[in-house]
C-alpha cells in the first residue's frame, strides 16, 4: 500500500499515541483491501458470467452438458489438434464465445464423423467423454454423438417449394436414418411430387454435413444445440397407444392433493352469501 500514507501516519502517531494510529492504519488498509477486492470481484464475476452465457455453440462429439463443460474444459486444444479435418476451433478473444473452449461452425467445416473419434480420447479432463460416444459394448461409436440437431426452415427450403433437391439427404452420413424424404403430392401443379427432407432427432448427430451441403444462400437446414432446437412435452401428455412412451411415466411423480368433502348440504352452500355482501 502507499508508503507515503504510512509515513505521514507515523509522524502523527507520535502526537496521538502509537497504538491508536497503528490500529487505525491497519483497519483502513484492511477496509481498502476488502473494498478493492469487492470491486474487482464484482467486475470480474459479471464479465465471466456474461461471456459464458452463450448457448448457440456446437461442441465436439462426446461433450458433456454445457454447464459442466464450462467448468471442466481446461482449454488445452488437444481435441482441436487431433481433428484431421480442422473442424474444431478454440474461441478467440473477440469471438464473443466462451474464451478458449472448442466449437465448430458446420457451414464452414462440419464434423466428418471419424469412426475412431480422435478428438475425444485425448481430452485430459473428460469434458469430452468417451462413454457418451460409445455403444453398449464399450466401443467408440460416432453415431451416438449428440453435437446438435439439424432443423429445416420449411419456408426457405426449396424442396418444400416443390423444386427437387435432396442435397442434405444425400450428404447425411446416416442416410435414410437421420434425414428421410417424405413424399407428398404437389397440388399446385397437380402432377409433381414434393420430396421433403425430415430430420429424425433419435438418429441425427448434429454433424452438420447437411448444413454444409445445403444449396440455398444461407443454409435452410442448420444445426442447433439440442437444448435450443427441441421442445419438451413434460409428463402431462403420453402417447397412450405407444407402450414405449408410457414408460416415461414410470419415474414420474406428481403431487396428490385432497380436498375434504364438505359436510354442508348443497343448498346451504349455494345460499351462502358470506363475503359477497357488504355487512
Amino acid at each position: 500500500m502507499s508508503n507515503n500514507n504510512l509515513e505521514s501516519e507515523k509522524k502523527m502517531s507520535k502526537k496521538q499515541g502509537e497504538q491508536n494510529s497503528a490500529r487505525r492504519t491497519f483497519l483502513l488498509n484492511t477496509a481498502r483491501g476488502l473494498g478493492l477486492a469487492a470491486l474487482g470481484g464484482l467486475v470480474w464475476s459479471a464479465y465471466v458470467d456474461e461471456v459464458t452465457a452463450s448457448q448457440l455453440l456446437l461442441r465436439p462429439p462426446g461433450a458433456i452438458e454445457e454447464e459442466e463443460f464450462l467448468k471442466t474444459c481446461i482449454k488445452c486444444g488437444l481435441c482441436v489438434e487431433h481433428c484431421p479435418f480442422d473442424t474444431l476451433e478454440l474461441a478467440k478473444p473477440g469471438d464473443n464465445k466462451p474464451l478458449g473452449t472448442p466449437y465448430f461452425i458446420p457451414r464452414e467445416v462440419p464434423c466428418y464423423m471419424c469412426t475412431d473419434i480422435p478428438c475425444v480420447p485425448v481430452c485430459p479432463t473428460n469434458a469430452l467423454e468417451e462413454k457418451l460416444v460409445s455403444n453398449d459394448e464399450g466401443e467408440l461409436d460416432i453415431t451416438k454423438a449428440q453435437m446438435g440437431l439439424a432443423v429445416v426452415d420449411v419456408e426457405n427450403c426449396i424442396a418444400f417449394w416443390g423444386i427437387q433437391c435432396d442435397a442434405c439427404y444425400r450428404a447425411c452420413p446416416l442416410l435414410d436414418e437421420a434425414i428421410t424424404l417424405e413424399y407428398s403430392k404437389n397440388e399446385r401443379t397437380g402432377k409433381h411430387a414434393f420430396l421433403k427432407p425430415v430430420v429424425h432427432s433419435d438418429a441425427c448427430t448434429g454433424c452438420g454435413l447437411c448444413e454444409r451441403a445445403c444449396v440455398t444462400e444461407k443454409a435452410a437446414i442448420f444445426v442447433l444445440p439440442k437444448e435450443v432446437a427441441q421442445g419438451k412435452v413434460g409428463d402431462h401428455y403420453i402417447k397412450g397407444w405407444d407402450a414405449e412412451d408410457e414408460k416415461r411415466l414410470e419415474n414420474a411423480f406428481g403431487e396428490e392433493t385432497k380436498t375434504e368433502l364438505s359436510e354442508r348440504s348443497p343448498m346451504d352452500s349455494l345460499n351462502d352469501m358470506g363475503g359477497l355482501l357488504d355487512e
Partner: peptide, 23 residues
C-alpha cells in the same frame, strides 16, 4: 460461486499462449 474456472476465462497468459498456437 459461478461454477466456472474464473481466471481461465480472463487469463492474458492463456490468451497470448493459446493465441500464438491456435489463432
Amino acid at each position: 460461486a459461478f461454477g466456472i474456472t474464473a481466471f481461465e476465462f480472463v487469463s492474458p497468459i492463456s490468451m497470448v499462449h493459446r493465441g500464438l498456437i491456435f489463432g
